[in-house]
């Protein structure tokens, strides 16, 4: 097995074009598990950790986060601007995993249980991918195409995630059967976009891919009055929970039953809606 260690993005893309079978490795927290369990025997590993471009983030109208920025830095440096992503990052593995693991790696693995996916979907993230042929911007919605499959071409690398700083409250919630260091049984993300008078809602670990709960979003877009916010009716929360649950098509597996996942998603949807809306109300009142 070759271990390729480019120091610039251009070099890395050239290598990837020449050797599309080379497996990129960022934090290695997925790749090394696969190698250790002998699930995968790549001819080459393409180490991305020496490429500075991938390990920085920049400010602006929107944030551009290099694919190799580890979770610990997202939590510490971007928590205020991206509360949803920070909450999801905070639930990933253990401190050791958060020191190494990256959002780029989460996207590369594209596991339906990856914790950042629902947040990226709910906050309209765009994934920047590059190859020697050029750069593509892929909406998170179009990124996940199957169980552990994404829309990358063999010669492409994930270079960054673009997303707007939170303009409204965001929440992420994840069920696991242990109080820390646990793969999601199911998860849910909700972002309020008050400027556009709409919400983003997405489920994780409850379908072959992470997915948006479109009907639930539509429902809330109509049900929430962003201009004249009032406390929520229980019936709105309940209906939202039902629609989120219906968006999922989970399976029974060792981590949980399909019925439980549907149930839990409805509960998380109700609760996160309550929290985000309450936060919005409080902020509005503070401004008024």
């Amino acid at each position: 097995m070759d271990f390729l260690r480019p120091t610039t993005l251009a070099e890395a893309l050239a290598v990837k074009a020449e050797r599309p079978d080379a497996v990129p490795i960022a934090g290695g927290t997925d790749v090394m598990v696969e190698l250790n369990f002998d699930h995968r025997r790549p001819a080459a590993l393409l180490d991305l950790t020496r490429i500075d471009e991938l390990r920085t983030w920049s400010d602006g109208d929107e944030l551009r986060i290099g694919s190799g920025v580890p979770y610990v830095r997202i939590i510490e440096e971007l928590g205020a601007q991206l509360p949803g992503l920070a909450m999801a990052s905070r639930t990933v593995g253990s401190p050791q995993i958060r020191n190494r693991g990256t959002v780029g790696g989460n996207l590369g693995a594209a596991s339906p249980a990856g914790d950042t996916h629902p947040v990226l979907l709910a906050s309209d993230a765009v994934i920047e991918v590059a190859s020697v042929r050029g750069t593509r911007m892929i909406e998170a919605d179009d990124f996940y195409v199957g169980v552990k499959r994404n829309s990358l071409e063999p010669d492409e690398l994930i270079t960054a995630i673009h997303l707007a700083p939170a303009a409204g409250p965001q929440q992420f919630s994840k069920v696991g059967t242990r109080n820390a260091m646990v793969i999601a049984v199911c998860s849910f993300a909700l972002s309020l976009h008050p400027g556009e008078k709409r919400v983003g809602a997405a489920v994780g670990s409850a379908a072959p891919t992470p997915r948006r709960a479109r009907d639930a979003e539509e429902f809330l877009n109509h049900a929430l009055d962003f201009d004249n916010p009032r406390p929520l009716l229980d019936s709105v929360k309940r209906e939202f929970g039902e629609l989120v649950s219906q968006a999922a098509s989970p399976i029974d597996d060792v981590r949980g039953s399909a019925a439980y996942r549907k149930h839990a998603l409805a509960v998380m949807a109700r609760r996160t809606l309550g929290w985000t809306w309450q936060e919005f109300l409080t902020e509005e009142q503070a401004c008024a």
Binding site: F172, K174, V175
Partner: peptide, 13 residues
């Protein structure tokens, strides 16, 4: 709280 930082409850339930 039950669920820990997975943020499943702020006391509800």
């Amino acid at each position: 709280l039950p669920g820990g930082v997975s943020n499943t409850t702020h006391g509800e339930g």
